[in-house]
Design a protein around this nucleic acid. Structure first.
Lengths: 146, 146
DNA sequence: TATTGTTATACTCTATAACTATA
DNA sequence: TATAGTTATAGAGTATAACAATA
C-alpha cells in the first residue's frame, strides 16, 4: 500500500489515517536500510526486547511486546533460523524456553538499531527537535495510558 | 493483538512500536463506538472520502486514500452491500464508476464521524489540548512530507 | 495500445483452538 | 488441573497478475 495520497482529503486529518500512514512511511524508510543486515523491523524489535534486561521466556517476551504467545513462537523461529537467538530449556521449569541473543544476534542488533534510528530521523525530518520529542512523548503517553 | 505490555521495555520507545500500538489502541476504542452504526473505521474513512468534494471514480478515491485500486473495489463492495454508496457508470467515460454516498450513507457518516471523534478524544485523553494538536500536526507533517 | 474496474490468487500478520510436555 | 510452547488453521488486509469493457 502506498503511504501518501497525491490529493489530500479531509479523511487525512483523522488520527487513524495519520497513524497508519506514518507507520507505512516509516516501514518504507526502514526496509532498504535494514535489508543489508538481513532483518526486518519486527525482528529487530524482538531482538532488542530479548537483549534488554533479564533473560526471558517466550511468554514473558510476548507480554512485554504486546503480542500473542503463538505469534512469539514464529518470531523466535525466524530469529533462530538466522542464528540470532538461542532457545534453552529453563532448568527451573522445563516447560519454559529462555530465549537469548547469540553473539551474532547482538552484532546485528547494534548495526540494525543504527539503521533503524536513521530511518526514524528521516521520518521526523520535517519536524524540529522539540516537535520530534513532543511526538514521541505524546505517543508514549497515549499508548501507556490506563 | 493486545495493545500495551504490562512491563514496558526499551523497544517501546521506538517509533514503529509507538505508532503501531497507538493505532491498536485507537481501534480498540473505536470498535464499540462504531459497531452500533454498522460500520468499521475503514468504511467510515472511505465514506468520508467519497462525501468530500467532487464525485469520484474508484481510482480517484483509491489514489486519495493511498490504497490500491483492487482494494478500493472491495471497500466499495462493502459499502454498496450496506446501501451506503451507489456505483454509477460515468457517461463521459464508460470505463469509470462514479461512487457517491446514498442518503443513508450520509446519515451513517454523520453519526459515525461523531463516534469516531469521541474515540479520538478518549485516545488523546492523557494529553493537554496543545499536546493533542501538536501530535496531529506532527503526524500530518511526517505523512505529507516530500 | 492504454486505462478502469474486476476476479482470482497469494502473501503477511495476527489470533483461536487443540495438542504435547511439564508442573 | 493448569501452564509453556507448539501446530494447524482461519481471518483481516493488502497486493500482483490476468481479464473484460471501453477509450
Amino acid at each position: 500500500m502506498s503511504s501518501a495520497p497525491e490529493t489530500p482529503a479531509v479523511v487525512t486529518r483523522r488520527l487513524g489515517y495519520l497513524l497508519k500512514h506514518a507507520q507505512l512511511r516509516l516501514a518504507e524508510l526502514q526496509e532498504p536500510l535494514l535489508a543489508p543486515h538481513g532483518v526486518t523491523g519486527r525482528q529487530v524489535a524482538v531482538l532488542a526486547l530479548l537483549a534488554d534486561g533479564e533473560p526471558q521466556s517466550q511468554q514473558e517476551a510476548a507480554a512485554r511486546l504486546g503480542v500473542d504467545r503463538t505469534t512469539m513462537v514464529q518470531l523466535v523461529d525466524e530469529l533462530e533460523d538466522k542464528a540470532l537467538v538461542r532457545r534453552q530449556v529453563d532448568p527451573a521449569d522445563r516447560r519454559r524456553r529462555i530465549v537469548t541473543p547469540t553473539e551474532e544476534g547482538l552484532r546485528v542488533l547494534t548495526a540494525a538499531t543504527e539503521a533503524s534510528e536513521e530511518a526514524e530521523r528521516r521520518l521526523l525530518g520535517p519536524l524540529g527537535g522539540r516537535e520530534a520529542d513532543g511526538l514521541r512523548e505524546a505517543l508514549w503517553a497515549v499508548v501507556h495510558q490506563r
